Amino acid sequence: MGRQRVLFLAASLAVALAAGATNHSLWVHGRGGGGQVGNYADFSSWGPATVNAGVNKKSVNWDGYSRISTQDFRLRNALDCFCTGANWCYVAVHSAGDLMIGYVLDLYGGSQRFKKIPLPGADGQCTNSDGTTQTGWNIKWVDVAGGAAGGSELANNGSWAASDPLVSDLKTATARALYNHNNTRGVMFHMYAGAKGTFYSGLLPGQDDDAVAYHSSGGVSGSGGASFCNPSDWFCDDLTLGTALNQGGRAKWANHSVRLRDDAEAYGHSTGRNWGGIVAPMRADMELNAR
């Protein structure tokens, strides 16, 4: 009788978990951080938490200071919590958050993950649901605003604080060699590339959002950065929309597609902690399509 009761309770839990299956929108910030680590409700690095930023939004906070290899477990915890079992995720990343999600998918996206109950503790971790595992995570797609997976020349030339360990990862040669950028585990990356620039834009090749150039925010492949621009600029090759080869023949990384090229040069890199800059059109997409 006791065994039958245990089986009944286990079956009831499985039904409850299935009934509670839902989609989540994960937001992964870049360098600098700002939100409380492990607190998925703290959107202080982005802007007011009341803003619509996709279904069941969660802020994946990490320190924004340390090297990717020492902080990537924060994202893995979130993916385990909200993107396993019957639950699926949309992921939005900004700046070095692009480097983070790419790193995690390449190195761990083929690993066995325990399915979790999406009720995190204070440490940002969730408990196992039924003891079974799955390969990788359930991710519908990734939106990328001002992506720094290709690194930034501002890290190369010391424009950012040398004491910041993350800057070492953000050097263009290092970022491009950190993991296999083509290995997204089949997940599509939608790139939002800003071009507002600033007075020191001469340090960055081609168009830029004042922190990263088009070669990075546009997901352009290769071992180093190169100059890519809007069609109105005659002095460097065009960054093309979608997955097409860029002018001059340079390809984008596999499963990387430029959704927004800032032809009007209207979007900068910073959110202003108010969902601003190049994050603004990405947030609008999450509101409309992450359901």
Score class of each variant (00 low, 15 high):
G38Y: 03
F189M: 15
K58M: 04
S25Q: 03
G206R: 11
H256T: 10
G33M: 05
N157E: 11
G186S: 03
G20K: 10
T198W: 08
N289D: 07
A78N: 11
A122C: 01
D72M: 11
G151P: 11
M100Y: 01
D130E: 03
V93Y: 03
S221R: 05
P165C: 12
A254T: 14
C236Y: 08
T135H: 07
R273S: 14
V55Q: 10
F114P: 05
G20F: 08
R259I: 05
L7A: 14
Q207W: 03
V279L: 14
D210K: 06
C126E: 01
A264D: 15
I101F: 00
R76T: 13
R176G: 13
N246Y: 02
A148G: 14
N87K: 07
W160M: 13
N156E: 13
N77Y: 15
A21C: 10
N87E: 01
A266N: 13
G102F: 03
H269C: 12
H190T: 00
G30Q: 04
E153D: 07
A251W: 02
P48F: 07
H24Y: 15
A86L: 05
S45E: 06
T132G: 02
Y179T: 04
S25D: 03
Y65I: 01
T271D: 12
N156M: 04
C126I: 01
G151D: 08
A161M: 10
F189Y: 12
T172Y: 05
S257Y: 06
Q207P: 01
N289R: 14
D237T: 08
F189T: 01
T198E: 11
Q207K: 14
G54R: 06
D143A: 04
N52C: 02
H215R: 08
R113Q: 15
C83R: 08
G35T: 06
L204C: 04
L99H: 02
R261D: 09
A78P: 11
V187T: 09
T22N: 13
G47V: 07
F43T: 02
G268N: 13
G206M: 10
G151R: 08
I101K: 00
H190V: 00
S95H: 02
G147R: 02
G54A: 04
T174M: 01
A280I: 04
G194I: 11
G147A: 06
R113F: 01
V28L: 08
Y90G: 05
V51L: 12
G219R: 03
S66H: 00
G225V: 12
H181Q: 13
G131H: 05
G277T: 09
S163D: 13
L17K: 00
A145N: 13
M100K: 02
G276C: 11
L13K: 15
L204F: 05
L170M: 15
S111F: 10
L107A: 06
S12N: 09
V37W: 05
Y103S: 04
S227F: 02
V220N: 01
W160F: 14
C126Q: 01
N289W: 13
S163Q: 09
A19Q: 09
L99I: 04
D80N: 15
L245G: 00
L288F: 03
W253S: 01
V167W: 09
V60E: 06
R283K: 11
V60W: 02
N56V: 02
V167E: 15
A290M: 05
F73D: 09
